[in-house]
Design a protein around this nucleic acid. Structure first.
Ligand SMILES: [Mn+2]
Ligand SMILES: [Mn+2]
Ligand SMILES: [Zn+2]
Ligand SMILES: [Zn+2]
Lengths: 137, 137
DNA sequence: GTATACTTGCAACGCAGTTGCATTAAATTA
DNA sequence: TAATTTAATGCAACTGCGTTGCAAGTATAC
């Protein structure tokens, strides 16, 4: 099993109360979270420390940015296999027009799109917009 | 033919020197432009006026945002058929890792991606990252 | 030409995110 | 367990992109 403690260890990060709390919040969320989302769930966490914590987690392959077309960064857990060197989070993201939540669509297969345009594609992001399952009810 | 003058008229906008200048810059650019990009090409244009001009153009269907995964808005010309009510700019965008330029890939067909996830998809953005044709040389 | 409605320019502001630096705390070692 | 080392934290100040309020200026319609 992968406890929060283990995850931090595995990525060679010091175990601190802030890191544990932040990682718990991200792990237990169904949707990707912004820095502010997390700030609201954790009382009295320092804004700057939180930004730095997120950057650290991202660089270590613990979390990834969920590109959703808004101008606010949102983060979600990475695959188990991600690390400092390799991020393989090639899945689409869904951003709800109604509630603003952003979800990872891990299960969704992104087809390699053909192109003979002279552009060398190295990675791709797919952003879907619409109404999320919760808001559809 | 569609002169700058005509485009503004067709979208029921007053003809002003600033609007003409800004639209010329956007029309003549191969890549999507940020507010700052435009500011640098036009001497002494007021920052705020420029932002408002871009918003106006966007709302009228003259230009559209080129979603490129950066946190800076970039704009490019719309299809001839876009207007106040209908934007149909459903094409991928390419953002160069090397020079940072963003290009519309109008010719590129975006396949409807299958999904049985409970999410109602209304629109989609595709962002490709890599090396652009110019930087590949 | 005059009236009207829209556009422009300036100042001040809001918000997400960053940088510098002193203080504090986790891990290592003895 | 205590000393040492190295990294994390917290505060202040700052940057950059974009917005809002308001007074002055200008394009358009009559
Ligand atoms: Mn994701
Ligand atoms: Mn485009
Ligand atoms: Zn929703
Ligand atoms: Zn390039």
């Amino acid at each position: 099993m992968n406890t929060i403690h283990d995850i931090l260890k595995q990525h060679e990060l010091r175990i601190t109360p802030i890191r544990e709390m932040v990682l718990v919040v991200i792990r237990d969320s169904k949707s990707a979270l912004s820095s502010q989302d997390i700030e609201l769930k954790l009382n009295d966490i320092d804004r700057i420390t939180l930004y730095r914590t997120l950057k650290t987690f991202e660089s270590k392959g613990i979390i990834h940015k969920a590109v959703d077309g808004t101008n606010v960064q949102k983060f979600a857990m990475c695959d188990a296999g991600c690390n400092e060197h390799i991020h393989h989070d090639q899945h689409a993201h869904f951003n709800c027009d109604h509630c603003g939540s952003t979800f990872c669509l891990d299960s969704l297969e992104i087809p390699a799109i053909k192109h003979d345009t002279g552009f060398q594609v190295r990675s791709m992001d797919v952003i879907m917009k619409g109404i999320c399952a919760d808001c559809a009810d």
